[in-house]
């Protein structure tokens, strides 16, 4: 019995009917408590949609999503989200105030709020940037604010939607390593979305590869029990990359062929 469980989840936008394009069809997904699960798939297959369903931003058209025996309801602080891109930060708040935001909404006192936010800012390497506004910071630093804002909540579940997707390769590598050390032993259950195989291997306990849409679901799963931190140059890394590439590559080719035909 998983900690989080998607059973027979269908999703389509708009009202049901023959014209509705199915995004997810019969999605089965199970996350154990404390597990770092990576959803991998070609772009447009429905990864963000799956995350939105777990976050509570959307409702399944059919099927159930259950966490600790309870159906998923409204979004809340038990499932915090790190959004794709930086459109979720508040540009009128400083980095420090952005990180304080969840604490402010839950009535934590000012001094306590400041202390906890400062702790997380320094843990993500922004100790000297707390008084800056998001537009004064680089893309990588903005994602660090998002990570601090999510982790300051001490949430049992973290949902991350391609958090490093828009960053340059060097910054991405650094942030991946930092995320490994932050999450290691934190006990949080993580659903992490990416289309980058290497990123998935560095981070995941388990990887689910999704089919090309429409009507996507998890096609294949890979368990990775390599010790952390993982070495991008190791033989085991290369072997895992190769196995996953075979499965994912086939789905990406489907998308590319379809786009070329259209």
């Amino acid at each position: 019995m998983g900690f989080i469980r998607f059973s027979g989840v269908d999703f389509h936008y708009g009202p049901a009917g023959s014209s509705a394009v199915s995004i997810l069809k019969g999605l089965e997904l199970e996350l154990a408590q404390g597990e770092f699960y990576v959803l991998l798939g070609p772009s447009g297959c429905g990864k963000t949609t799956a995350l939105n369903l777990l976050a509570g931003f959307e409702r399944p058209s059919a099927g159930t999503i259950v966490m600790e025996g309870h159906a998923i309801g409204e979004p809340g602080m038990d499932r915090v989200v790190i959004f794709q891109g930086d459109d979720s930060l508040y540009p009128w708040l400083t980095a420090q105030e952005n990180v304080e935001f969840p604490l402010r909404m839950t009535g934590v006192g000012a001094a306590e709020r400041r202390r906890r936010a400062a702790t997380w800012l320094s843990r993500v390497g922004l100790a000297n940037h707390g008084q800056k506004f998001p537009h004064q910071l680089s893309g990588g630093m903005k994602q660090r604010i998002q990570i601090a804002r999510a982790l300051v909540c001490d949430a049992p579940v973290l949902l991350m939607d391609e958090p490093f997707g828009a960053l340059d390769a060097q910054t991405r590598t650094i942030l991946q390593d930092e995320l490994v050390s932050i999450c290691n032993g934190s006990g949080a259950t993580v659903l992490f979305i990416t289309h980058d195989i290497a990123e998935a291997i560095i981070l995941a306990d388990r990887i689910g590869v999704m089919r090309a849409g429409p009507g996507s679901a998890v096609k294949d799963e890979f368990a990775l029990d390599l010790p952390r931190p993982r070495n991008r140059g190791s033989v085991e890394f290369a072997a895992a990359y190769d196995r996953i590439q075979r499965v994912l590559g086939e789905e990406v080719r489907k998308v590319v062929t379809r786009e070329a035909a259209a």
Partner: peptide, 9 residues
């Protein structure tokens, strides 16, 4: 930004 507000309480 609105979704984040809902998530963060």
């Amino acid at each position: 930004r609105m979704r984040a507000a809902r998530v963060f309480g």
